[in-house]
């Protein structure tokens, strides 16, 4: 039927870009942490040089991330309310404790690693894994509990966030390892076989991420009317350039090709692929957060 809106109020943006940046940083942190435990938690010796880089990245990123929350909230000097007036039904309350416990654990884990105390490092590395998964998984729950929005209110959201966190974590690790080896190591020599391993790992996690994004969009496309509306916003509407071109083509398919075809894989393409992934995942967060609340509710 022909109908036309004559008057309605415009809604304020609820989350916006600061929250997208916050999700992005916690994702990078969780991804870096998990990589650092490959050697120190699970004893995969060939990834040993990732340990220290990983734990430093994880800690620093997770100290920066909550600052964006303080920028976002309206009354930052009341942030202490989060620790006093608890509502255990709210993912944000889960998060306020995770955001304290996880960096503390990172610092202890890092301390033992630099002191080269193997046993304690392993213990705090293994404690850190569920914390790292929770600290990023809970951000997926924040969106999944936002039942007003079809793009958010899906059980896929936490796992989608975790997988994209690992994708961005590996890519960032490749870039940081190259910079570290090239400029800050004694030999100034890049450990290419290690990077190649990371690159292959990245390629296959990207495939899993693409699979999850595909599942999400396909189900949205045949779900209820608001779900269809937001799916079309992403694949053919205003968010099409960011979602399809930047996030999925440049951020996933191109890097996957560069990393998985042996003839294309070298140091230069690895740097390009990792840069594209790190940028692509930022736009993934942006599209989910800002695109999710783009369509008016009423």
């Amino acid at each position: 039927m022909d109908s036309q809106l004559l008057y309605n109020i415009t809604q304020q943006e609820a989350f916006g870009v600061f929250i997208a940046v916050y999700f992005y940083l916690t994702g990078l942190s969780a991804g870096s942490f998990i990589l650092s435990t490959l050697a120190y938690g699970f004893g995969m010796e060939r990834y040993k040089s990732l340990g220290r880089v990983g734990v430093i990245l994880a800690t620093v990123l997770l100290i920066i991330a909550p600052l964006f929350l303080l920028l976002h909230i309206g009354v930052p000097h009341r942030a202490w309310h989060l620790f006093v007036y608890l509502n255990f039904e709210s993912p944000i309350t889960w998060g306020s404790f995770l955001l304290i416990l996880y960096p503390i654990n990172c610092i202890i884990y890092g301390y033992f690693m630099f002191k080269e105390k193997k046993k304690q490092t392993r213990l705090f590395g293994l404690i850190g894994i569920p914390l790292a998964i929770s600290v990023h998984g809970y951000t997926g729950f924040i969106l999944a509990f936002g039942k007003a929005r079809a793009l958010w209110n899906t059980a896929l959201m936490p796992i989608l966030f975790l997988v994209s966190a690992i994708v961005s974590g590996i890519a960032l690790m490749i870039l940081v390892c190259i910079i570290k080896d090239r400029f800050f190591s004694k030999l100034k020599k890049i450990d290419y076989p290690l990077l190649e391993n990371l690159g292959k790992m990245l390629a296959w996690v990207i495939v899993f991420d693409l699979f999850l994004v595909g599942c999400d969009i396909l189900v949205l496309l045949i779900s209820h009317s608001e779900a269809q509306e937001v799916a079309h916003l992403l694949i053919s509407g205003k968010f099409f350039p960011l979602f399809l071109i930047v996030e999925n083509l440049l951020g996933k398919i191109v890097p996957f090709t560069l990393l998985s075809v042996p003839r294309l894989r070298n140091l230069a393409t690895m740097i390009i692929a990792s840069l594209l992934v790190v940028i692509g995942i930022f736009f993934m967060r942006y599209v989910v957060v800002v695109g999710g609340e783009f369509i008016p509710l009423m």
Partner: peptide, 23 residues
């Protein structure tokens, strides 16, 4: 009590909540 985190605004399906631009 409110800290202005806007999570309620994000989850309300009716869009009836707003941030007071002054407070």
């Amino acid at each position: 009590r409110c800290i202005g985190c806007r999570y309620c605004m994000a989850s309300c399906p009716y869009g009836v909540r707003h941030i007071n631009p002054l407070t």
